[in-house]
């Protein structure tokens, strides 16, 4: 977000390293918590191993992390938060605050309390509404289907369409793995 905002000058800027070729790469480096911004030519950027120009993050987690989660108004992380670590991989919250990266999938549980407001700030939401993996998400897929069937059943009841409601009820039972008790018998709509 911090780029693109300042007015651009028309003259060509020269590389701040070789001072001969035109600068085309914006290189940001963080040394001891201090950020340095330099404009380099492609060649110098490559020589410095900073060939990042195709992936310059305009909005990094560090921007958001700064002074937000677990941080007191003075910018220091609260000791209790600093000391927190993931019981599975041993990664500490302090490491996360420094790198913006988590240690393993279980870190999300370990730091749930701290991450939730951060995620809310980053995404404007904390709830996943996208794809559910077929295997890892089998339960939730079934849950979503069941919810949908229950909704249809309730809807049918509300319309007094009891035969239809019984049909949905049977489908729900199949999905829940329950035996269909009144198999073959005429459904009278009693649910």
């Amino acid at each position: 977000m911090e780029h693109n905002s300042e007015p651009r000058q028309d003259r060509v800027k020269l590389c701040q390293r070789c001072e001969s070729r035109p600068a085309s790469v914006h290189v940001s480096t963080v040394v001891n918590g201090e950020k340095f911004d330099r404009l380099l030519c492609e060649e110098c950027a490559r020589q410095e191993g900073a060939y990042h120009f195709m992936l310059i993050p305009q909005f990094t987690i560090q921007h958001v992390l700064g002074g937000l989660i677990g941080a007191s108004p003075t910018g220091q992380l609260r000791q209790a938060v600093v000391d927190k670590s993931c019981p599975v991989c041993g990664y500490s919250y302090k490491q996360f605050a420094e790198t913006g990266r988590l240690g393993c999938d279980h870190c999300y549980d370990a730091f749930h309390e701290e991450l939730e407001p951060l995620v809310k700030r980053l995404h404007g939401s904390v709830e996943h509404h996208g794809k559910v993996p077929k295997r890892a998400g089998q339960n939730i897929l079934q849950q979503r289907t069941l919810d949908e069937l229950r909704r249809k059943m309730q809807d049918a009841i509300a319309r007094e369409a009891f035969e239809e409601a019984a049909k949905w009820r049977d489908e729900i039972r199949v999905l829940e793995g329950q035996p269909q008790q009144d198999q073959g018998g005429h459904s009278d709509g009693a649910l």
């Binding site: 988590l102 999938d105 980053l122 996943h128 996208g130 794809k131 993996p133 890892a136």
Partner: peptide, 27 residues
């Protein structure tokens, strides 16, 4: 899908796909 048939993904019902950086979670 076909990769998920062969690999166990880190996935959470609430947060979606879990990634090294929280900027990428969800989808």
């Amino acid at each position: 899908d076909v990769l998920e048939q062969r690999l166990d993904y880190a996935y959470d019902n609430h947060s979606g796909y879990l990634t090294a950086c929280p900027t990428n979670i969800g989808t």
